[in-house]
């Protein structure tokens, strides 16, 4: 009987290490430089759309996180009472310093993702890939993989690699599955650069 107990205990121990200790060691966590609420901007009071700030330029290139100039359009001086807004104006807008945002969805160097093809031609919504990020009140903690330097969002929050929501994880498998489902035929260099 005993060897089996040892075996079960060993498996349990390994599972605990793998499930909790391993991600804690693998990822480095850091807070965003500034508190930001998407909901304030996109909700009833703000009424903005994603594309009001996150735009593509005329050549189709996605511009990513807007620069402080974009923020300054409304927040040249504080319009509310919040501490973070005051910080934004004082530390970034007035001295015209870019905010060192940590990007959740930054892909590895060799991945090429055209937003225009997916949004304009493919008629996909931002939420399809980014989830309900646009209606969040706070910015999540940013996890960086200590080995690869990638954001944890690339692998997904679930350490086993399974995800219940479509926007969790941005691995190649996901791209390929969706392309396959939609009869897209691609070569490697269609999405790699």
């Amino acid at each position: 009987m005993k060897p089996y107990l040892v075996l079960i205990a060993g498996i349990l121990f390994g599972a605990i290490i793998g499930w909790f200790a391993f991600p804690a060691i693998l990822y480095h966590s850091s807070d965003q430089p500034l508190h930001f609420s998407h909901n304030t901007h996109t909700g009833e009071s703000g009424g903005m759309a994603c594309t009001d700030c996150h735009t593509t330029n005329e050549t189709g290139r996605f511009q990513g996180i807007p620069s402080v100039i974009k923020c300054a359009e409304c927040h040249a001086s504080p319009i509310g009472e919040s501490v973070s807004e005051k910080q934004l104006v004082e530390h970034y807008i007035t001295p015209n310093v870019e905010i060192p945002w940590l990007v959740y969805s930054r892909q590895p160097d060799n991945a090429y993702f055209p937003h225009a093809a997916h949004v304009t031609l493919g008629k996909m919504k931002c939420e399809d890939c980014h989830g309900p990020h646009g209606s969040s009140d706070t910015l999540r903690i940013h996890y960086t993989n200590r080995i690869s330097g990638y954001s944890r969002d690339v692998w997904g929050a679930n350490i086993s690699g399974f995800s219940s929501n479509r926007w969790e994880g941005m691995k190649m498998d996901k791209c390929v599955r969706c392309h396959g489902d939609n009869n897209r035929r691609d070569g490697c260099v269609s999405c790699h650069k």
Binding site: T56, E58, T59, G60, R61, D109, N110, Y112, P114, A116, A117, T120, L121, V189, H192, K193
Partner: peptide, 29 residues
């Protein structure tokens, strides 16, 4: 638009694939 390569791998001409990406992007817009 072109990822640099690391030591120990093979590379070759791909008809400037980054330019095809750009052209596709532009068309998609």
């Amino acid at each position: 638009d072109v990822a640099p390569r690391m030591r120990g791998v093979v590379e070759k001409c791909n008809f400037c694939h980054s330019r095809l990406h750009s052209a596709k992007d532009k068309a998609a817009t």
